[in-house]
Structures are given as structure tokens and as C-alpha cells.
Simulated assay, not measured.
Amino acid sequence: MERGSLVLRVALTLLTVAATPTHCSYHSHTLPNVHHEEKVTHLHFYLFDIISGDKPSAVEVARSNSTKNDSSPTPFGSVWAIDDPLREGPEATSKVIGNAQGLYVSSVQDETKLGLVMYVDFGFTEGKFKGSSFSVFSRNPVTETNRELAVVGGRGRFRMAKGFAKLKTSYLNVTNGDAIIEYKVTLIHY
């Protein structure tokens, strides 16, 4: 009987604690419905993706076991971390205006083509957009002459950006994978 009484007291105690009201508050601040006018910004720059040399701007960080004998610069399933300089022109001596940091994954199995999926933030370190960036999350069919990437966000002056980037390969070394890519970007932001 004593054991049954103990079980009953524990059950009642748990029930009482579970049913005890607690004090909490929820706060929300809603902004008035203010219409902000969209801005359109056009950017033109060159991305230098350098895989070779002593100080590459792109390095392989993972590779599928099934492609370990693939000798191409970017075998299917490989993942690359990048910190590529953005320059005003296609010359290696042109002014650096920012960098592209992120990842790309080699996503095409056909060895005659090169395709990537890119997760990259394009940040500016010079000029009127210094401290601002836009982000791309898109498929990049590298072997196509003209291609387009989706802009999915931004920060700073490009907050809530959407848009697209038109790409054209300015230089590609098929042996080592080094490339210079021309970017013409249209951003819609507030």
C-alpha cells in the first residue's frame, strides 16, 4: 500500500507541475506597409579562377572515390573551395575590386563537358559598392559559350538582391583548369 501511495504522490506532483501556468510574453513589431522602390544595378568585372601554381585561388577539398583516377582538372563529384579575385579587366594587372568566396561542385558526368553548381558570394572591397555583396546559387554549364547564373540574395547595398549574371569565358587553360570569366550582372534590389 505504501508503494502505491508513493506512486500516486509522484504522479500528482508531476501533474501539478505540468499544469502550472507559466508567465511568458511574445513581442512582435510590424513595420508599416511602406513601398520601397526597386533599384537596378549593372556590374561588369572579371573573375580569375586559378587552380595551378603555388598560390591557387581555387582548391579541391573533396573528390568522389569513383573518380579518383580521372585526370581532368575538375572530375565529376569534386568539390572546390574558392577565394577568386574580381578584377576590373581581363588582364592579371588590372585592379582587384573584390573577391568571390564559396564552393563549386563538378556536376556533369560527361567527360567532354564541364558543368558546375556554384554556391558563391561576390564581395566588393573597392569603389562605391565596398562592403556589399551578392550571392549566386546556380548551375554553370562551363562549356557553353554564353551562360547565365541566378542571383539569389545580397547584403549591404545589394540587400534582398535578385537577378542574373551573364558569363563568358575570356580565357581557359584546358590542361590545368585556370580560367578568366567575364561577368555582366544585373541586380534588382532595394
Score class of each variant (00 low, 15 high):
36 H>I: 07
22 T>S: 06
98 G>K: 00
168 K>L: 08
22 T>F: 15
33 N>G: 06
53 G>D: 08
26 Y>C: 15
85 P>Q: 04
180 I>E: 01
144 E>T: 14
48 F>V: 04
51 I>K: 09
117 V>M: 10
188 I>W: 12
188 I>Y: 15
129 F>N: 14
41 T>P: 01
87 R>I: 01
98 G>R: 00
175 T>F: 05
182 E>R: 12
142 V>Q: 03
165 A>G: 06
69 N>K: 06
74 T>G: 01
97 I>M: 03
19 A>V: 09
162 K>A: 07
91 E>K: 13
120 V>D: 00
1 M>A: 11
128 K>T: 13
41 T>W: 03
146 N>L: 11
27 H>W: 06
58 A>S: 13
176 N>Y: 05
83 D>I: 02
116 L>I: 01
95 K>I: 14
19 A>K: 06
112 T>N: 13
47 L>E: 09
16 T>H: 01
59 V>L: 02
28 S>R: 07
154 G>Y: 03
66 S>L: 11
36 H>F: 15
69 N>V: 10
103 L>S: 00
125 T>H: 01
94 S>N: 08
8 L>P: 03
52 S>D: 11
95 K>N: 10
123 G>F: 02
174 V>F: 14
59 V>Y: 00
77 G>H: 04
140 N>Y: 13
156 G>C: 07
87 R>V: 01
1 M>D: 14
153 G>F: 01
20 T>N: 02
66 S>P: 12
103 L>E: 00
130 K>P: 04
136 V>H: 04
45 F>N: 13
37 E>Q: 12
2 E>W: 06
91 E>T: 11
79 V>T: 04
131 G>Q: 02
11 A>R: 12
115 G>P: 09
34 V>K: 09
138 S>A: 11
181 I>R: 08
132 S>N: 06
142 V>G: 06
21 P>K: 11
112 T>Q: 11
164 F>L: 14
20 T>Y: 09
72 S>F: 06
34 V>T: 15
75 P>T: 05
98 G>T: 02
41 T>Q: 05
124 F>V: 00
54 D>R: 04
109 Q>W: 12
6 L>R: 15
59 V>I: 14
90 P>Y: 10
106 S>K: 02
126 E>K: 06
121 D>Q: 07
16 T>I: 13
71 S>H: 05
21 P>R: 11
5 S>T: 10
140 N>G: 02
190 Y>H: 08
151 V>I: 14
147 R>F: 03
99 N>Q: 05
129 F>L: 11
102 G>W: 00
81 A>M: 07
184 K>L: 04
3 R>L: 13
28 S>P: 00
16 T>F: 07
24 C>P: 02
116 L>Q: 04
141 P>L: 10
161 A>R: 03
6 L>Q: 10
174 V>A: 14
60 E>G: 00
160 M>E: 11
187 L>P: 10
125 T>P: 00
48 F>T: 08
157 R>K: 15
6 L>N: 09
168 K>Q: 15
158 F>C: 14
42 H>C: 06
135 S>N: 09
164 F>G: 15
168 K>C: 09
113 K>V: 05
60 E>S: 03
24 C>I: 09
53 G>S: 07
148 E>F: 08
23 H>G: 08
184 K>G: 03
88 E>D: 07
153 G>R: 10
49 D>K: 01
81 A>W: 13
